[in-house]
Amino acid sequence: MDDPEPERNISGGAAGGGTEQGFDPATAGTRAEAVVDALGELYWQKRYGGRDGFECLVRTILSQNTSDKASQPAHDALVDRYGGGDLVAALADADQQELAETISAAGLYNQKSERIVAIAELIREEYGGEGAFDTFVKDGDPDEVRERLLDFNGVGPKTADCVLLFAGGRGGVFPVDTHVHRIARRMGLAPADADHETVREHLEAAVPAEKCGFGHTAMIQFGREYCRARKPACLDDPDACPLAEYCDQVGVYPASGEVVDPAEASD
C-alpha cells in the first residue's frame, strides 16, 4: 500500500508558503541542476524562509515518520492550545501527557511530546525564549546552527536542514527525506548505496544555492506523483515520466516489473 500522503506538498503550490522565485532554466551546469530546473518548470520555483525557528522545529519533529496529512492537524492543534505567546515557554511548562493528547494525530505522540518538551526546556535555558532562538536560527553561522540543532535529542539531519531552509532561509540547503533519497539514487544523481547525508552532499554540491529549496519540495512532490517507491510511473510506460530523459532507472526493471532499492540493484 502506498504511503498515506496528501496530493500536494504543504510547502508547494500557490498557498504552500515561500515566495515565488523565478530562474533561468538555460544550460544547466550539472545533470542534478537540469533535474531541478525541470522540476521547477513542472511544479514551482520558490524561495523559502521566514518561518519562526522554534515553531518550524516543532512542526518538523511532528512530521517525522508520518505524512503531511497526519502532521498538519497535530501542528494546528498544538498552536491552538499553546500558541499566542512565547511558544518555547509554553511548551517547556507543558504537561507532557496533555501535549501527547494534543498532537496524537501525528503518531508516535508520546515520544514526540517528550522530545518537544525537553527541547523547549533546553532552548529556554540556553537562549531565554522563542525570539532569541529565532534570531540564532536566522542570523547565526549556518554550520553552528546545524550542529546545535543536531545536538537536540530527536533532531536528525533532515529536521535540522528543514529548519535552516524554512525558518533560516539559507541557500544551498537541500534536505533529504525518503523521497529525495530514493529519487536521487534511482536517477543516478548520487551513488546507489549513498546514505541520506551522502545524497545531501552530492545534491548541494551540484545544485546552485538558490535552487536547493524548491528542488527539495518539488522533488518530494515528484516522488508522490511519479517516482513512487513501489510503482514508479516508468514501470509500465517509459513515456509517463516527465523526467525520463534524465533518469538512469537504477533498481527499476520495466521488462520484469521488478523494483528494488537502488543499493540492491544489479549491475
Rank of each mutant, 00 (worst) to 15 (best):
H196W: 08
G84Y: 10
T60Q: 05
L203S: 07
P25S: 13
A192Y: 02
H216D: 00
R81N: 13
G29C: 11
E101R: 14
Q249T: 15
A263M: 07
F174I: 11
A244M: 14
L87D: 08
K211L: 15
F23R: 06
A120H: 01
V207Q: 10
G84D: 10
T102R: 02
A206E: 15
L108T: 07
Y127V: 12
P254K: 03
T19L: 14
L78M: 15
P262W: 05
P238T: 08
E210N: 12
P262T: 01
A120P: 08
R81W: 13
T60N: 10
T135A: 09
T159D: 04
E114M: 04
E98I: 13
D52I: 13
D52L: 04
G49Q: 01
R185F: 11
Q21P: 00
S104N: 02
K231T: 15
G215L: 08
Y127M: 08
Y82L: 08
L91H: 02
D193K: 08
K112F: 06
S256R: 08
E204S: 14
A70T: 10
D248A: 14
V58N: 11
E264P: 04
G156L: 13
P238N: 00
H181D: 10
L62Q: 07
V207G: 12
D161Q: 09
H196N: 07
E125Q: 09
V117D: 03
E33Q: 13
Q96V: 15
V199Y: 10
L91T: 01
G154V: 02
G188E: 13
G83R: 03
V58E: 01
L203G: 09
R81K: 12
H181Q: 07
Q249V: 05
L122F: 00
E264M: 12
C227G: 09
D141R: 03
E114F: 04
L189Y: 07
V36T: 12
A184P: 01
F222R: 02
P254Y: 02
E210A: 15
A190K: 09
D261T: 12
A255R: 09
Y127T: 07
Y109G: 03
P6N: 10
T27Y: 00
E125L: 07
G107P: 06
S113M: 01
D68K: 00
R228N: 11
R200M: 04
P242G: 07
E245A: 15
K158C: 05
V180H: 10
A192H: 06
E126C: 05
G223I: 10
A229R: 14
T198R: 15
R224S: 03
A263I: 08
T66S: 07
A34S: 15
L57G: 09
V79N: 01
A206D: 15
Y246S: 01
A106H: 03
A120W: 06
A89Y: 04
H179W: 14
G49Y: 02
F152G: 03
E55Q: 12
Q97K: 02
V88I: 06
F136G: 09
I123W: 00
A26M: 00
V180T: 13
E258N: 00
D37G: 10
R81D: 11
I119P: 09
G53L: 04
P254N: 06
G156V: 08
D80W: 00
K211D: 13
D93T: 12
E33L: 11
C247F: 03
R47C: 06
L91S: 06
T27G: 15
A244W: 01
I116W: 03
S67A: 14
